[in-house]
Design a binder for these strands. Structure first.
Lengths: 237, 237
DNA sequence: TGTACATCAGTGAACGCGCGTTCACTGATGTAC
DNA sequence: TGTACATCAGTGAACGCGCGTTCACTGATGTAC
C-alpha cells in the first residue's frame, strides 16, 4: 500500500519537476514574462489541461519557479563559499559574491524571474517568497559575522539613523547580525547587484568592455572597505 | 501652402504625442511588457488600425518610448544639477544622482522600460538607442571633469587593465573623460543603479526600510571616495 | 465665388494566431476481496 | 487466480478573451483653378 502510494507520488513529483524544467527552458528563450502553460504542454506533447494535475494554476507554477530560483541562487553562493576553509573569510566572501554573478549569467531566465521586472498579472505571495529571497543575504551575513568575531573585519561606514531605527524595530530582518555588519552586507549586495543588472540588460558591456574585470574590481573595493584582505587569510593551498 | 502643411504636421505630431502619452499611462498600470496597440486605441476611442497612421508598427512605438525615456531621464538629471553654481561640484553631482532616482520613482514604467527586463519579442535598434542611453553618463562625466580640472577631485581607485585597454580602444565611449574619471563615473552609476533596482522591484524596502536614506548614504560614500566634499563647495546660498 | 480634385485620418471586417481555464469523458493501473 | 472497484493521468471540445496587422472603404478637409 505504502509502496505504491509513494511510487505514484514519486512519479507525480517527477512530472512536476519536468514541467518546471521545460518552463525554465522556455523562459530562457522567450523571456520570463512569456511563460505559457499551453507552450509547455505543447513541448511535452501533452494537452494543456493535463498540466492542471500538477499545478492548480499558472501562478502556482510561477511561484514554484521563483522559490526554486532563490534556493538555487543561494545554494550556489553557499557552495562556492564552502570551498574555502572557515577562517579564509576574505576568500569566502569573494567566492560568494562571484557565485552571485556566475549563477545569474548561467541561469539568466531564472535570475530575471526573481530580480527583473515582475511578470504582469502575477503577484507573488510574499509569505512564501520573502524567506526564499532572504537566503542569499544570509550567506553573506554568516561570513561577515564570522570574520568580525575573529577580529578580521572593521567596517567603518556611517549608518543613517533611519536604517538604524528600522534595524532595531525588525529583529527578524537582521539575521542575528549587528547593525554595522548588516549595513555592510546590504551595501555589498546592492553594489554587486548594480553591476550585474547593468551587465545583464546590456547597458554596461558597451561602456566598459570587460564586465567580469569590472565586477571583480568592485568586490575588491568592497573587501577593502571592511579592511578585509585576501592576503590576511590563512594559507588556502 | 507651407502654412497648411505645417498645420497638418503639427496635428499629426500632436496625435503621435497623445499615443505615446496613453501608452505610458497604460505601461504604468499593466507593466511595460503588456503594451498593446489595441488597448491604446480603445482608450483613445479610436479603432486599432487608425494608429498605423502614426506608427508603422508596434515596435516603432516602443522605440519612440524608449528614446523619450532616456532623453527625459538625462534631462531630469541635467536640470537638477544645473540648479547649483558651476563650481559647486559636489552639490551638482549629488543633485544629478538624486535626480537619477527621483525620476525613476516618478516614472516607474518608463524606467522599467529602459532599465528593466527587455520586452519579449522586441529588440531595440541599438544605433538609435545607444546614443540616447549615453546621455545620463555624459551628465555625470561633465561634472567630474569640471571638478577635476579645478583640482577638486582625487579619484584613487585601482583600474583593471582590461578596462584601461577597452577605454584606450574606444574613444567614442569615453566622452572626453580621462580614464580615472571615467571609471569613477561608471562605478558611481552602477552603485546607485543597484540600490535603485533593488528598491524598485521591492527587494530592498523590507530589508532596510528607508531606501531614501540608504540611497543618500551611498551617494555620500561615493563623493567621499573621490575626496569630493559638499562642504568644500563655494557658498551655495 | 464655385467646382474638381488630392490628401489622408479613421472605419469595419477579417485573418490567423495566441492564451488560461472548465468540463465531461476515457482508459489504464493497481487494490481489495 | 479472478473479478469488482477506486484512483487519477490525460483527452478533446469548448468558452471567452486577447493580440498585431491587412485591406478596401468612407468622408472630411483643404487646395488649385
Amino acid at each position: 500500500v505504502i509502496d505504491s502510494n509513494t511510487r505514484k507520488d514519486r512519479q507525480h513529483d517527477a512530472v512536476r519537476e519536468e514541467i518546471k524544467q521545460v518552463a525554465r527552458r522556455q523562459m530562457a528563450v522567450q523571456g520570463a514574462s512569456n511563460l505559457s502553460l499551453r507552450a509547455i504542454a505543447r513541448e511535452m506533447e501533452v494537452t494543456a489541461p493535463a498540466l492542471y494535475r500538477y499545478f492548480p494554476t499558472r501562478d502556482d507554477l510561477i511561484t514554484a519557479l521563483i522559490v526554486d530560483a532563490f534556493n538555487a541562487h543561494a545554494a550556489a553562493m553557499d557552495e562556492a563559499q564552502a570551498e574555502y576553509p572557515r577562517e579564509a573569510y576574505a576568500h569566502r566572501l569573494q567566492a560568494a559574491m562571484l557565485a552571485y554573478r556566475r549563477w545569474a549569467l548561467e541561469n539568466r531566465a531564472d535570475f530575471e524571474l526573481i530580480y527583473g521586472s515582475p511578470i504582469p498579472g502575477y503577484s507573488a505571495p510574499s509569505e512564501i517568497t520573502t524567506p526564499a529571497a532572504a537566503q542569499a543575504m544570509a550567506v553573506i551575513l554568516d561570513i561577515l559575522t564570522g570574520a568580525a568575531r575573529h577580529g578580521r573585519l572593521k567596517p567603518e561606514a556611517q549608518i543613517p539613523d533611519a536604517i538604524r531605527l528600522y534595524w532595531e524595530a525588525n529583529p527578524d530582518m537582521r539575521m542575528n547580525a549587528p547593525l554595522d555588519l548588516f549595513h555592510l552586507g546590504v551595501t555589498g549586495w546592492s553594489r554587486i547587484h548594480g553591476v550585474l543588472m547593468l551587465e545583464i540588460f546590456e547597458h554596461l558591456p558597451p561602456v566598459v568592455g570587460d564586465t567580469d574585470a569590472f565586477y571583480r574590481q568592485e568586490i575588491n573595493t568592497l573587501l577593502a572597505s571592511g579592511q578585509l584582505h585576501l592576503e590576511d587569510d590563512p594559507n588556502t593551498s
